[in-house]
Amino acid sequence: MLILTCPNCGEAKDETELHAGGEAHLKRFGPGSSDADFEAYLFERENPKGVHFERWHCAPGCGKWFHAARCTMTNEVFGTYSAQTTEPPENIKDAITAKRPGWHWRQFS
């Protein structure tokens, strides 16, 4: 059972109390963008075995979105952080580096 702590309400919630929102840190390409960018935005997703960044919704709880960093292989949670950011904060990156030296995910490492 995956247990994530929502940074907004501070509660530890198991995954049945949350709603998965897919990959985190996607940059939207909308009208006026190139076909390649738009296609990548719509369809191209990471599918890593290891470090992954995801969006989660505290659905029957405080109703806010947040980000989580976890390992898809072991379900180890490295941390959760605000959704109001375009990249993982340093403390989360450091926590991952401590456990998975040399990790990288998209442009982050």
């Binding site: 907004n8 309400c9 501070g10 709880g61 405080c62 109703g63 806010k64």
Partner: peptide, 16 residues
């Protein structure tokens, strides 16, 4: 306070 109920008022989320 966050996550508490003080009798009349029930905390629901950071903005509710």
């Amino acid at each position: 306070e966050r996550g508490m109920c003080n009798g009349a008022v029930v905390w629901m989320s950071p903005d509710e």
